[in-house]
Amino acid sequence: MEKIKPLRKSQYAPEGSGDTQHRACAHPPLSGPDAGCKLCRIEVDKLTVAFGRQVPLKDVSLHIHCGELTALIGTNGAGKTTLLRALLGQIDYKGTIRHLSSDGRPAADLRTGYVPQQLEFDRSSPVTVMDFMAGALSRRPVFLGVSRKTRARVMTALARTHCEALCDRAMGALSGGELQRVLLALALTPQPDLLILDEPVSGVDQNGLESFYQTVDELKHKNHMAILLVSHDLSVVERYADRVVLMQGTVVKQGVPEVVFDSPEFEQVFYTKGGRA
């Protein structure tokens, strides 16, 4: 069993040490419909997760390619979040998760960036976007003030998701869409090999949703990273995903969106079990 190491300490890497560079794939970023390089990838092989007698995930095998957005779909309890937690190194699992570079050899430890589902935090807290980002990116306690260097790094990060203007706003005062952009900016710093988006825009209005996914799409082309998205919104998946993985405790079907959406497995999961999720 080969375990990936979750991101530790490396988020404190000084500015310029790969905040915007892709590490494993020497391949120059491509654009257009054939953007996936199909070379550097994250390979999940026979991954099984058990909590006592409960087995939420069994024998999951899939490849996540860089330069592609892979969407995980399935009903509630299908094991999507469990798979994310395994990829983030937060739970024990059997099987392997390997990060392979463009020549098929094992690449550096998988560096993940994570945008969580919904946040239930104290919305009246005085903590600002700058405090939050600086607290995550630097060791210096935020109450002693943010150094100029960290401030610059935060601004660069925020600029990537077009939200520099939010830096001095309180976290709790942000709209759902704005908050997700800030979290996306953080997830992208330092540049991850795999960006994990867990229902990132649940509860965000239509405009926020569109602009969020446009930003993600832009990043995918520009930075050539692997993106894994969990979403219940199948119209979003249809429009933005390059590959779709249908889950039901294991992988039931995977492929390009049209193939998965037209498959009998899709029909069975979403229509015979009480309508479209």
Partner: peptide, 19 residues
């Protein structure tokens, strides 16, 4: 403790994903 506590207060899985 301050920075880790502040990030955890916003979201604990997110904090864990940041090491």
């Amino acid at each position: 403790l301050f920075n880790p506590l502040m990030i955890t207060s916003v979201n604990s899985p997110l904090a864990r994903s940041r090491g």
